[in-house]
Write a protein that binds this DNA or RNA. Structure first.
Lengths: 163, 163
DNA sequence: CTTACTGCAAATGTTTTGCAATCGG
DNA sequence: CCGATTGCAAAACATTTGCAGTAAG
């Protein structure tokens, strides 16, 4: 009996899809590509290219930074990974879990990321696209502001120092 | 009788707010800062730092690139300008027009940007923030996909060449 | 065998920064 | 006058690319 069944099958399924995608596009199934996919799917979320590289190294899987970027691109293209901006800095990547779409509330003070999803918003987005004859392929929504913890600190000295 | 009354007063109002913001923060009201604000408010929208610099030069207002960035930062901080990513490339800035909030549909093929706004989504966003005790200060929502024109071209040769 | 892939280092493009000269209040 | 701001050129940064060697099918 496997305790990690859910996670394993998600990762395995992703790998199947990725290999299929590669074959369909005359691309090669390489050790590096599979290892990168595996790393992304064995992690919670919100990795940037650097995090991913660090994790690969920690797990003794050698890849170059260039390959990380090239592979992330492929994974985004085939829909297995989502690319987004959380801070205003660089890109973050997270695995796509079918049926687990979510958007982000981002605290501008402590960097905390809260995930949410709302069926009504989803429905309105669809509707708006229809009205404009627009065929959506990627939704992204972020709300920046102060999380509840940081609101409490707002009038303390430490808060101001951080700015 | 002024035909441009609406636009002028918006720009004038923005300038008033900016000056107030600068004074409150012990910052100086410089020619460069006012000229940059003026340029942004005399333009439709979606400028990147480079566009702005080019426009300044075209209008014989000399500013350095560094000052452009520094000033845009101030304008974002005081809420007069909004910073966002439209393509996946660099940042775009647009003036904030009170009561004219909007979000973007972005065509990944031709780059066209369609603006929209939906009161229901707005309401749900507010509600979600409340539920999380989150105090929002900045909303951003983008939907990427194919605009109606590009969907028509989808099976033509020119479409594939672009990729 | 052929074509695609990898790693490296160099290149890119945008944004930021240190510093001396200058300007605003 | 003093402290903030400017412009410049250099630095920083994430990401991309050219190329020669290597691996997949």
């Amino acid at each position: 009996m496997r305790l990690d069944k859910g996670m394993s099958t998600l990762a395995e399924h992703a790998e199947k899809l990725f290999i299929q995608y590669l074959r369909e596009n005359n691309l090669k199934v390489t050790r590096e590509r599979l290892a990168l996919l595996g790393e992304i799917f064995s992690t919670k979320e919100h990795l940037d290219a650097d995090d991913l590289l660090a994790r690969m190294r920690a797990h003794k899987k050698k890849v170059s930074r260039a390959t990380v970027y090239r592979t992330l691109d492929l994974l985004v293209q085939c829909g297995l990974v989502r690319k987004s901006r959380l801070g205003q800095e660089h890109y973050f990547y997270e695995k796509v879990q079918p049926g687990k779409r979510h958007e982000h509330l981002i605290c501008t003070h402590c960097g905390k990321v809260i995930e949410f999803w709302d069926p009504e918003i989803d429905e309105r987005q669809r509707q708006i696209c229809l009205e404009h004859g627009f065929r959506p392929s990627f939704y992204s929504m972020q709300i920046r502001g102060l999380c509840s913890d940081c609101q409490k600190l707002e009038h303390e000295s430490t808060f101001l120092e951080a700015h």
